[in-house]
Design a protein around this nucleic acid. Structure first.
Lengths: 207, 207
DNA sequence: ACAAGTAGTTGCGTTAACTGCAAGTACTAT
DNA sequence: ATAGTACTTGCAGTTAACGCAACTACTTGT
């Protein structure tokens, strides 16, 4: 084991811990990168070695988590679109629950710090892109000019987000996975119809 | 007419024109606020009197446009949810077409300037919030703890965005309104089911 | 053991967005 | 004339973020 990497990771984690504490204590925008570095016991410049910007400290590994949930899709090529996307939604729920307190803590900051909400939305967009590509590939259509794969991907994402928000508003006490399953179920007729259209090759938007 | 306001508006428009030209010419991030001010013939500080930040120059009045589209909802309280939201989607299409070249020009910048895409997403979120509130009010449920109004609002928004993106990718040559109508039609069974649930009062998520 | 490389840290200097404050200009209303 | 309003401007300051180069500490090849 490379001891340099070990110390690097220790500093990285120290920065994350310091940032989380300061953000909770005095708010995101009110916290300077210098303060975070000081509390983590590193030089101000070091923060930007580990993270491209202040926001990324909070969203560390968030993209990776969401991308992992997508892998479920690739293992379900034989299942229907609705079934596959329901499974992905379930994987997303699991990944949120895995994060414990960090996820709700971050969500609580969205109100005061619009930059954080923006970052979350961007990460979501990337997730939609990936799912869109996977769906388009599955049915052999062009993800850029055919809106339907993106519609399928993004309505699942929207529904997840809406459900997560209600779950947060209720104090995270309900069963998130169950709530998400119930919500995604509402999309089934739409997803089935999209799938039928994509398989027929008859479509209103051209090829 | 107050001549001060006239000159104020003239400067404001000059800033918008200058910014648009410079952004197209050399990119958003590569353009400094000083350059914009110089080209518009005003002092650097004046830019921040008219706009809170550089991005807002590009998104001037965008929120207002989208909010106007929502008014359609309020005039359709007697119609079904699917019908109402389809009408709103149509209004959004119209508002986009009204903007002429500006809309595609802005969309073209999203690739190089992530901050712009983020801003667009934020504006969209506000739109979803408004529609969510309107739908929740219509059926007398709590928009914060019941996910269904937000699901209805956000899947329409997602579908619109997906369709707009395909329209852009095809060079803006197709009939956007028609494309959006076709796409939203896919949501009808889901929206009908959501509406039926909301009216029954029997639901899986509690009151 | 020694040289070469590599990961991580740090300091220095710079740019550019944005803010607060206060003053100034030009117009309007009474 | 006087007071108020709308907009403009200059100045000084904070902060995020980048580029560069040096430095430390550890690893690997010979």
């Amino acid at each position: 084991m490379d001891l340099r990497r070990v110390r690097g990771q220790r500093n990285r984690q120290a920065l994350i811990d310091a940032a989380l504490a300061l953000f909770e204590q005095q708010g995101f925008e009110e916290t300077t990168t210098d303060q975070i570095a000081a509390r983590a016991g590193v030089a101000p410049r070091t923060l930007f070695h580990h993270f491209p910007d202040k926001e990324e400290i909070l969203f560390d590994q968030q993209s990776e988590r969401l991308e992992a949930a997508i892998n479920v899709l690739r293992t379900m090529r034989d299942k229907s679109l609705a079934e596959s996307l329901t499974a992905v939604a379930g994987a997303v729920a699991t990944s949120i629950l895995d994060q414990g307190e960090v996820f709700p803590a971050r969500a609580r900051m969205y109100g005061k710090a619009p930059a954080l909400r923006s970052r979350m939305l961007s990460i979501n967009e990337k997730w939609i892109d990936k799912v869109t590509d996977e769906v388009a590939a599955r049915y052999g259509v062009d993800a850029r000019t055919d809106p339907r794969p993106r519609i399928a991907a993004s309505i699942v994402n929207s529904t997840n987000r809406a459900t997560i928000e209600a779950w947060l508003a209720r104090g995270c006490q309900d069963d998130l996975t169950e709530m998400i399953m119930t919500s995604v179920e509402l999309l089934r007729p739409t997803l089935d119809r999209v799938e039928a259209e994509l398989m027929e090759g008859l479509n209103a938007h051209g090829t």
